[in-house]
Design a protein around this nucleic acid. Structure first.
Lengths: 254, 254
DNA sequence: CGACGATTTGACTCTTCTCAATAAATGTGG
DNA sequence: CCACATTTATTGAGAAGAGTCAAATCGTCG
């Protein structure tokens, strides 16, 4: 295996993938491996810049990012904007199950690889279909909660909080153990971040310089280093006053 | 039937409710009505200001708004903010299926009523469980798509677009036929809107005055009238250039 | 090395927020 | 049903935040 300079292409382990519960139902790692193979297409490579789906692509199944990163482009009125990012272990296409066709574009930000779970082959699961659906419902529910939190942060009052929350989120999602990485590679352009957060690219740049000067984090090109997690969390509005353990909060709003 | 002045309390029809597909599986309107009754608690009244769930409430099932309106309050860091609204026909609690417990507060903005679908009684569906789950997956998928669109609009560059998109969304969601109503009652305070959109309450107020002066819409207290749908859609960034019918868009980003 | 795209920085403008003061609504009790 | 108290909404003025345009660096890749 060749690798260029320090660029590894980390691949998420199946047990850290949102598809895992679903793959397990299909017999992942058991004697029933052939069942899994017949439902999930594993590790399909996607080159940087390639489009996984475009508007009009019919829904055939959901994808799980195995390595790399993707961005979703959506048409908002006359303008095309970045509306989502997808990192290893995350599912793509959940919002399209019902409608039957994609309305946006999903594009690889890096050379990536994905697994695909074909919905047309689900009948092969036979009596395991109920368990499969259960797993899917749980994955969707988890995702909805996550999206809601992210969405709330993206609506935050000021740009500083939005960017801090975004970086914290990316640092966390790029790390298999779901804790923010101290060092990582930002797969998207400043322009993508600006677009996604609804800010000007110059604002992003200035904030990054400022964060760096304050010793919170440092971005050199695409290489990111977080120096002060506590401050970053605070900026992002993620810090919660530590409640005395064991004491239930009263039945008051949040 | 008595009604106070012009204030009806419109109740959504079952066929316009997101729970409908699910209720149908359980035999809504068929000879099997008793099955439905044993799974869905129908038309439970909730007084204005009452909390449907608070942080720590265990998940027992999902709710469907039958009449009235609700808001979701979430703790974002130190601050409690409005993160969602729920109108007749919409489901509440989908993001909590997986985690087992609510982390936010859902509060009635008006006297309202809801149906509850208890998850502990699902086994009574027997062999229909597969169809039930199918319906639930579709409802969740639909909701994810909707939330994504809303979220993208809420991140819009300027306050004018955000507010226009919000009002258009509310006008649509308050109307059973899913087209924006020309006249409706805004169930939430300006403060709720400001909080939800991440804007100052004064900004909301000024924009509303401006919209009114431009003849787009008029808000007197809580009574809203939309005069110019086209302009409102344009402001909200919802206008799409009409593509020549029958011609597929090229495989380009959106 | 050199060219091109990406990012940063500066100067200036426009938008949105904050604080303060009114003005409407809404609710309450007589 | 009216007067008063309270909450909610609007308006104004000045300050801070974020956007725009233009120019200068930085980085990457052939």
């Amino acid at each position: 295996m060749t690798r260029r300079s320090c660029r590894r292409r980390p691949e998420v382990e199946c047990r850290d993938c949102e598809l895992f519960g679903i793959c397990q139902v299909a017999g992942l790692g058991s004697i029933d491996d052939s069942l899994l193979e017949s439902v999930v297409s594993r590790r399909w490579p996607v080159a940087r810049g390639d489009k996984l789906v475009t508007p009009g692509t019919p829904f055939r199944g959901i994808f799980a990012v195995k390595s790399g990163a993707f961005r979703t482009l959506s048409r908002i009125g006359q303008r095309v904007r970045v509306t989502d990012f997808h990192f290893p272990g995350e599912l793509i296409g959940l919002e399209t199950i019902e409608s039957g066709g994609y309305i946006h574009t999903v594009e690889a930000l890096d050379d990536s690889s994905i697994c695909e779970l074909g919905f047309s082959r689900l009948h092969r699961l036979g009596p395991r279909l109920v368990q499969f659906q259960e797993q899917l419902i749980q994955a969707m529910s988890r995702r909805m909660r996550h999206d809601q939190q992210l969405c709330a942060l993206a609506r935050a009052q000021n740009s500083e909080q939005r960017l801090a929350a975004f970086l914290y989120s990316v640092a966390t999602r790029l790390n298999p153990d779901q804790r923010p990485a101290a060092e990582f590679r930002l797969p998207m352009l400043r322009e993508d971040i600006a677009d996604y957060l609804g800010l000007a690219i110059e604002t992003i740049s200035r904030l990054l310089t400022q964060f760096s000067q304050r010793g919170i984090l440092h971005l050199r090109g695409r290489n990111a280093q977080i120096h002060d997690f506590k401050s970053l969390r605070a900026l992002a509005g993620l810090d919660v006053l530590v409640e005395p353990a064991g004491i239930e909060p009263p039945a008051e709003p949040c």
